[in-house]
Write a protein that binds this DNA or RNA. Structure first.
Length: 110
DNA sequence: AAGGTGACCGGCC
DNA sequence: TGGCCGGCCACCT
């Protein structure tokens, strides 16, 4: 029996899945919605597990500075950047250009 | 059961 | 923006 939504991870997946096309969010924002702002690290952990799920666009999740911190965890090295650029997001030196412009938070949805 | 770990954040300089 | 330090919580062994 799949116990996805029951876990802290499940919640993260749902939020990440709701990230619109061409938008990016931060771990802190997700953690905030989950109610655990202080444990933004856990969000990263969740993303690590989300690696197995294809429904979770982890490439749209970056750190506060707009850095593609997790790009190392992707299959390739520039895969994450390619995906973002494919969505119209400019990425330079592992950093998102006009990060704030593409910034999106789950709170917006609410 | 306890300890170690981690794709982070915020504050300070 | 950049570097360093402490906190924080869930997952894994």
């Amino acid at each position: 029996m799949p116990e996805l939504n029951d876990n802290f991870f499940g919640k993260v997946y749902e939020v990440v899945r709701q990230i619109p096309y061409g938008k990016v969010t931060t771990y802190g924002a997700i953690a905030k919605v989950l109610g655990t702002v202080r444990s933004a690290r856990m969000v990263g952990w969740a993303m690590n597990a989300s690696h197995n799920l294809e429904d979770v666009p982890a490439h749209r999740v970056v750190n506060k500075k707009g850095l593609l911190t997790g790009k190392h965890h992707f299959d390739g090295t520039n895969l994450m950047q390619q995906l973002l650029e494919s969505e119209g997001i400019e990425v330079k030196e592992n950093q998102i250009v006009d990060f704030q412009k593409h910034f999106w938070t789950p709170e917006m949805k609410l």
